[in-house]
Nucleic acid binder design. Structure first.
Lengths: 202, 202
DNA sequence: GTGTTGACTGATCAAATGATCAGCAGTAGG
DNA sequence: CCTACTGCTGATCATTTGATCAGTCAACAC
């Protein structure tokens, strides 16, 4: 089952290359991944990769854009403005977590991308990704659900950061919990804790 | 001014290599960095790098361990068990932020390391790094300063995660704040917000 | 049939990689 | 003076890198 939405309906080899490249890039990053390894994982010859994408860097960029597009589409469907603020915030964080949890390779690819990527690309991307979320958070804040002692943009992005952290650092989290003998937490518990941090004190 | 504590008192070239390697590794990661580029930045010949460290990978490991050691030493001096819980938590987060803020190269190196590094290395490292912090957080929780509706380990590590996020994502934070016309925040404001999230409701 | 187009591959290229080796200079010990 | 050792370098190694090129093959148009 492919992690990425197919780029071309019938482009068999092409999609195979994209999926294989995603896996290799996610594991070793841009510089660590070799075109031959990608080609082998895709079951095609190495020149074919250049034939379809024009080069390793272009392939990298195609994958990155595909992930962003998938994410935007998913979130657009998950953010429901009709929901009451409380449920809405929870649903949003839950969707965010579910999306990446279902796409571990894309998640790791994005981690690499953040280190490699150029600054301006990063800024514009985050701008477009956070805008709707911030607006939603402000609404929840106005409704008295989210604490109002911090800017809505910060509340929104901190929620995202904590979910990101939850996804990224299971190892560290488990270690920290073990210090006091606590056991691991389920995803739903994590969402609950994060929402509670952001809630207005009742 | 070197970012790393000198490894050898008089090892002139050796320390130059370490500093140069830190810079190049931080910029491009392990696979993106070339030994020739490191040598050139250090003002020495490329074979000298092998002569002193035995290889690129060993050099990478030396730097990583040096950063961890510096961090541990710094935090040990910054965590003051005599402080009242509230001030102690604030001081701890402030120290954490100050340490990495003063060492942007080391910070970025560590980001790379987290992606490259082997899992077991990661686990043991985080284990040893978080243990004292968790213990401290539990004390602050018992004293009623930190909210008690989440495990102390989670409180400790979430505080760290938010500071980390603050350091790592200035770009995204600025973008999110701009959506509602808010301007940037000072470090001290960030610390304040983070502590407030973790505080017990009064 | 012929011609054309596009997907695809094996062979190969120039460049860059990390590592190695022989040797140079300086210095300390005898 | 000789030896030994250490810090250091230029030259060079084998390997791997991403990219290119010529050419095969099948599908399709006419």
């Amino acid at each position: 089952m492919p992690e990425l939405h197919p780029t071309f309906p019938q482009g068999d080899a092409r999609n195979a290359i994209v999926e294989a490249a995603l896996a290799v890039f996610a594991a070793k990053g841009f510089h660590g991944a070799g075109t031959r390894q990608i080609a082998q994982a895709a079951g095609v010859s190495q020149p074919l990769l250049n034939h379809h994408f024009g080069g390793k860097e272009a392939l990298w960029r195609v994958i990155g854009e595909q992930i962003t597009a998938d994410f935007m589409a998913f979130m657009a469907g998950a953010v429901d403005l009709a929901l009451p603020p409380g449920d809405g915030v929870t649903a949003m964080l839950r969707a965010y977590l579910a999306f990446w949890k279902a796409r571990p390779l894309s998640f790791r690819f994005n981690l690499w991308r953040r280190l490699d990527g150029l600054q301006d690309e990063r800024a514009s991307r985050s701008e477009e990704m956070t805008r709707p979320v911030v607006a939603f958070m402000q609404r929840a804040q106005d409704a008295g659900f989210i604490r109002n002692d911090l800017p809505p943009g910060l509340a929104a992005i901190m929620g995202g950061a904590l979910v990101q952290f939850w996804l990224d650092s299971q190892l560290e989290i488990r270690a920290a919990l073990a210090v006091t003998g606590d056991e691991g937490l389920a995803d739903e518990d994590a969402i609950g804790h994060i929402v509670r941090l952001l809630r207005a004190p009742s």
